[in-house]
Nucleic acid binder design. Structure first.
Lengths: 337, 337
DNA sequence: CAATCTTCCGCAAGCGCTTGCGGAGATTTT
DNA sequence: AAAATCTCCGCAAGCGCTTGCGGAAGATTG
């Protein structure tokens, strides 16, 4: 049975409240008394019970982190920075792998209501639905969204400007002298993906290139569909010379298909991918990618949430971060692979 | 302000204690009363305050998961299964990325003492030190180790039999007709790594092959050292024909070096790697690997911990899981890459 | 029909901490 | 020198829940 405030109080010969004030660095405790108390605290390595403190103060110093899928490349970076910021502020992070399961997500969000956590960060996943709205509308709901949009309600949100990313990727390919550029993307329902497509379209427009529907491929994002898409594209009368691929896995499949066909990258086909996973630098050739500021994403999300918890409002409700293009060999013959 | 037990009690016209018993499915509540209570509970979507419950019952229903580094390939799998098992049992998981920082680890372990979590799982990292010992010796310390060993004290531990893994890898290469096989490994201080080495040695011995010190390479585990090690090896009078590489990253570097040298895999050099990350299946050629039962590892760890928390002792204190060899093209010319 | 058991439920203490309030003594003001 | 002001600290209520104990019924027995 660990020590309690009462024990310490008895040992020092003061009241519980005095010990509490001393421990929490609050005023109203004499220099001398404070020293005596702290001495005993150190000596017995006393740690106040967080549960009791939480109950009294109505806070848990825990935040929940909801992820659509833990295994998504790049998420670990986001998680790390969230955890780091939270930690520094004395908060712990509860991990919730929602596995895109709406019920599981709902159950986790209820933790917030159960006073289990002080707030939550949701990263990725479908468009926010009623559950989230309700939580957000409820004053108790301290919630920040990352790479995800809510319907009507204004919830603090951190996004990467995927339209910009799509634009950068496409413009870069155009600058390589290519005019027929295909986009191989995930579900167009996905807000993030559709934004990339918008960027793609805008880039073509700005460079006076026609938008060709037959060069837009919506896939399930798997390696296989990357492979198959290439085969489909090659059956066109005029196959594209450049590919903007919106995920690593798609790129892997695409590259396999290209190599299998006996073609060379970037000489025959130039590729730009999205997201800066380990894969992109390991694969041959290394992929030019649109890199997202993952750490910043996580850091900002955590900072926003902490502000909400402390009843300060963040400077801006929606914060959009800029991706950058990292040029590597897959799109540029100049660069040695 | 959310509802409390007292509110519900007043609404139904019974005592708080009765509501509590009803909600927790405890005996001593009449059928009729129970129904009335549950009706109101549903109606107002009442959720008991976990903090208060925890304080009264001295439990948090939270477990801590300490990881040496979140980004380690394979960890996400372990995390996912731990989270899943814990969740099913009504527990939440707090994520602690210790970043191999002993202070951070210590701070996190103190959460256990602070009644913040009911138990902890530590996966990976250095040999367990005093902090852990103290925690484990303390009756409060519900602790399970994964892929990590404690000194003297007997702490429930789940391990992968890395000696077996090393043996499998090496024996496989020997069966491919190779007799000069190098091992490229991480720090020999690392228990897991040294076990792999032991397996390597045993396999050589069992097949009557000499152990050559010059074929044992200890590295920092980086891609670069994989690359450089190959160059070093090629300067030997008789370079090896097969490589047992204990991590993906090393394998990536090694493969780069081999290709750069104009050699072919597996014809000139056969490779077996360790761990089943995405990389190994994407790289060309796909790597033969020793695969660890990651999900089982996580599941067992969680189950062990839950047993400890419920004051049952697990069936065995130390549980050793078997890795399996997944044969792919990097070690076998028969297999199409 | 009295005696004994059950069943159902309320009372109240307690989990370990925080915090508003007020009292005693020391210090400053007019 | 009396009054006003501070400083330091204890008292006690309260956070929202659990649980042992015991009382008031109703059900069961001889």
């Amino acid at each position: 049975m660990p020590l309690t405030l009462k024990d310490i109080a008895r040992m020092v010969g003061v009241a519980e409240s005095t010990v509490s004030r001393a421990i929490n660095n609050k005023p109203g405790v004499g220099e001398e008394t404070r020293r005596k108390i702290m001495k005993i605290v150190k000596e017995y390595n006393f740690k106040p019970n967080q549960l009791a403190r939480g109950l009294a103060k109505k806070e848990t110093r825990i935040i929940a982190l909801l992820l659509s899928d833990l295994a998504t490349p790049g998420y670990t970076e986001i998680i790390k920075s969230i955890e780091e910021v939270a930690n520094r502020a004395g908060y712990q992070v509860i991990l919730c792998n929602t596995a895109n399961d709406i019920d599981k997500e709902k159950a986790y969000l209820e933790l917030v209501a159960r006073n289990r956590v002080d707030g939550a960060i949701i990263v990725g996943g479908e468009l926010a639905d009623k559950n989230i709205l309700n939580l957000a509308l409820n004053k108790e709901g301290r919630l920040v969204l990352v790479n995800r949009l809510a319907e009507e309600v204004l919830i603090p949100t951190i996004l990467v400007d995927n339209a910009k990313g799509g634009y950068l990727a496409t413009a870069h390919l155009i600058e390589q002298g290519l005019s027929r550029i295909a986009i191989i993307m995930g579900s167009i329902q996905d807000f993030l993906e559709s934004e990339k497509l918008n960027g793609y379209k805008q880039a073509l427009k700005d460079h006076n290139l026609p938008l060709r529907e037959e060069l837009i491929f919506e896939t399930d994002g798997s390696r296989e569909s990357g492979y198959n898409t290439f085969l489909n594209l090659m059956e066109l009368d005029e196959p594209p010379g450049g590919f903007f691929v919106t995920s690593d896995l798609l790129a892997v499949g695409l590259i396999e298909a290209i190599k299998m066909g006996g073609y060379f990258i970037p000489d025959d086909f130039a590729i730009v991918s999205y997201g800066e996973s380990l894969i992109t630098s390991i694969i041959n050739p290394p992929l030019t990618v649109v890199a997202e500021p993952l750490n910043k994403l996580g850091r900002l999300a955590a900072e926003y949430l902490l502000k909400l918890i402390n009843n300060q409002s963040p400077d801006r409700v929606i914060r959009v971060l800029e991706p950058v293009l990292k040029m590597r060999a897959s799109s540029n013959p100049q660069i040695k692979s």
